[in-house]
Structure formats: structure tokens, C-alpha cells
């Protein structure tokens, strides 16, 4: 059996861990996996290192054939950290790969690089990156994606690709899924903004990982140098996603109070204003209102056609397994009030 050396940068993160599991489960190729992250994980051989340190990166990538780069800070942090990790870090990864002769670089980008508050009804990859991004996360992801794709050089045997998952969720997800958990915990589950008529692509992390593993095999000179949308291809109304978890966590009377956008937007703006004035963290922001009021649906026919991607977990399977995780979390949570 073929043996391939793979380094997963961000191997201790949500997507990274799923990628490592799937690589190790692959029966057709013997992947020798190393995780490169700030913390070690129990799944594979781990190198503890910092993406902003090019010497550490270069050392870890020595004699490696495939580099998967899925490291990124979580959302809601300061601007500097995004530029440091997403932009400088990614530039380091590209440079290190080139200097030691890595053959394939697979980068986890984000479907948000084309989103600046407009409706995305079936957005494909022809859509240009936004000129002005909604936040620093999107902006730095966009810069990083361009860095990776520009480095693609089939002539000298260095292939790069960017995958753009939309709305990743799953067990261990501290963003979308956990935010619903938090709302359920803190009693905010009763409110719904708008009429729940906007669709979102929520993508199960197992499918995101699957797309990366596919690229380890199917990335070639023809399909490289490009970005690909990755979703479950089962868009769902946002509050259906939330309702499923609320109900599963025992919040039976969820989403009973509806706040129309016409009221929610000015309210959010005012609370932001006072937030700035009195320096407190505002959760009810106009950014979130914009997010909730626009459709975010992506077309994945390009990935289907050129990568052979198709979702291997249904949305239902993904939601069920995430609920199991959230339920365990709840049962251990001493602050949870029934």
C-alpha cells in the first residue's frame, strides 16, 4: 500500500481532528499523519508549534508530501490576531511548503469570502471576493486564500487548492452549535428575529473533512489553483437549525416571541451605540441582524464535478450527533437551569 506523509496544521481544531480521523481510517492509502498546532492531540503524532514561526513550520514539513492547512482563530477576536494567524501564518505555510518541496497544499478557506451582507441564493465560485468585508475574519481569510491560490505552480510540481466550507457545525463546534447551546442555557431561546424565511447552508464537519481527504487523492494540475464551495447541499432555515437543538435540549417553548427586523435593526443599532459608549460587549449586533436576514446558500456543483465531492453525512445525521454532544455538555453543566 502507498504511504503518504501528511501534516495537518491546526490538527487540534474541530476540522483538523475530523480530518486526522478520516485520514487514519482510510483503507486505500497509508497516511502517516502529523498534527501541527499550539496544543497536542491524542489522535496522531503531534508537533507543538506556532504557525507564526516559520522555522518551526519548515522543520515540521520536511519530507512531507501533503500539507493541510486548517488553522484559524475562532470568531469574535481582535483584528490583530486574525492578521497574524490567517495572513502572516498562511504566508509562512506557503513559503515553508515551497522551500522544502511539499507537493500539495490544501487550504481551508471560508464561504464568507464572498459575503458582505447581500443575499446569496445559489452563489458559485465565479462571484468575486468582497471589496469591503464584514469583519476582520472574512477579510483575512480572503487575503490568505489568494496567497495560497497564487502559489499554485503545476509546472514545478506544487499544487494548491482552497476549500470554502459554509456554516461548519458538529460535535465539538464552539461556534454555531455552541451559540445555540448558550442561548438555550441563558434563557434567550424564546426570541426569534424575523420570520425565519432565510436559508443557510450548514455543513457537517464530517463532510468538510471528507472534502479535504478527497483532495489528498484527487488534487491534480487541472483542478488546482482554485477555490471550491463545500456544503451539505441541504440548506435549512436558521431557526429550524436552532429549534432542533432547543427542543432536543429540553427547551420546549422556544422561539415563541417574534421580533420583526424593522424593529430589531434599530434596536441592535441602539444597543451597539450604548455598548460603545459604556464599553460592554453587545451580542445583539447589526452584524448579526444582517446575517440573520440574508440568505446564504452556495452552489457546490464545481466541487461535485471536479473533485468528485458529495456530502457523505446527511444534515439529519449531523444534527443528531451534534445534539448527543450538546446533551452531554448540558448534563455536565452545573449552571444549567431546567
Amino acid at each position: 500500500m502507498e504511504t503518504k506523509k501528511v501534516v495537518v496544521i491546526g490538527g487540534s481544531g474541530l476540522v483538523g481532528q475530523y480530518i486526522i480521523k478520516q485520514l487514519l481510517n482510510d483503507k486505500s492509502v497509508n497516511y502517516q499523519v502529523t498534527s501541527f498546532d499550539l496544543t497536542a492531540n491524542s489522535l496522531s503524532h503531534s508537533v507543538i508549534g506556532d504557525i507564526t514561526n516559520i522555522a518551526q513550520l519548515t522543520e515540521a514539513l520536511e519530507n512531507v508530501e501533503i500539507c493541510i492547512h486548517c488553522a484559524s482563530p475562532r470568531t469574535g477576536l481582535g483584528k490583530e490576531i486574525y492578521f497574524k494567524v490567517n495572513v502572516e501564518g498562511t504566508r509562512n505555510v506557503v513559503d515553508a511548503c515551497k522551500s522544502v518541496g511539499v507537493k500539495k497544499l490544501i487550504f481551508t478557506s471560508s464561504a464568507s469570502v464572498v459575503y458582505n451582507g447581500q443575499h446569496l441564493l445559489n452563489a458559485n465560485e465565479d462571484l468575486p471576493h468582497c471589496d469591503i468585508h464584514l469583519d476582520a475574519y472574512n477579510e483575512t481569510k480572503s487575503i490568505a486564500e489568494k496567497l495560497v491560490l497564487e502559489a499554485n505552480d503545476p509546472a514545478s510540481g506544487f499544487l494548491t487548492i482552497a476549500l470554502r466550507p459554509a456554516g461548519i457545525f458538529g460535535p465539538g463546534d464552539l461556534q454555531a452549535s455552541y451559540s445555540v447551546y448558550k442561548a438555550a442555557k441563558e434563557g434567550k431561546y424564546k426570541y426569534m428575529v424575523g420570520e425565519n424565511k432565510t436559508l443557510f447552508d450548514m455543513t457537517f464537519v464530517g463532510n468538510v473533512a471528507h472534502a479535504h481527504v478527497l483532495c489528498c487523492k484527487n488534487l491534480n494540475a487541472e483542478n488546482s489553483g482554485q477555490a471550491y464551495n463545500i456544503t451539505n447541499d441541504e440548506p435549512i432555515y436558521w431557526f429550524d437549525f436552532a429549534k432542533f437543538f432547543y427542543d432536543g435540549l429540553g427547551r420546549k417553548d422556544s422561539l415563541k416571541i417574534q421580533i420583526p427586523f424593522t424593529i430589531a435593526f434599530p434596536m441592535a443599532a441602539i444597543s451597539e451605540f450604548f455598548g460603545h459608549l459604556f464599553k460592554f460587549e453587545v451580542l445583539f449586533t447589526t452584524f448579526r441582524m444582517t446575517f440573520l436576514s440574508t440568505n446564504r446558500v452556495y452552489d457546490i456543483s464545481k466541487a461535485r464535478k471536479y473533485l468528485g465531492y458529495k456530502p457523505v453525512y446527511s444534515l439529519e445525521e449531523g444534527l443528531e450527533s451534534t445534539l448527543v454532544w450538546l446533551t452531554e455538555l448540558r448534563d455536565k453543566d452545573t449552571e444549567w437551569k431546567v
Binding site: 443575499h119 446569496l120 445559489n122 434596536m267
Partner: peptide, 29 residues
Amino acid sequence: GTLKALELSSNTQRGCLDYLLVIITAVAA
């Protein structure tokens, strides 16, 4: 892939930010 001006099912009215000074909403806020 996109459509800005189209009035979609969501009926969002982001223009309403312009009416920020309406006193009633301040109470609601």
C-alpha cells in the same frame, strides 16, 4: 450568485436604520 435589489421572501428592510431616531424604537431598545 447574488441579488441585492430583489425583494425576497425575507422582506428585510435594512434601510430602516435610517429611521434610527424614531423615539418608539428607543423605548424598545
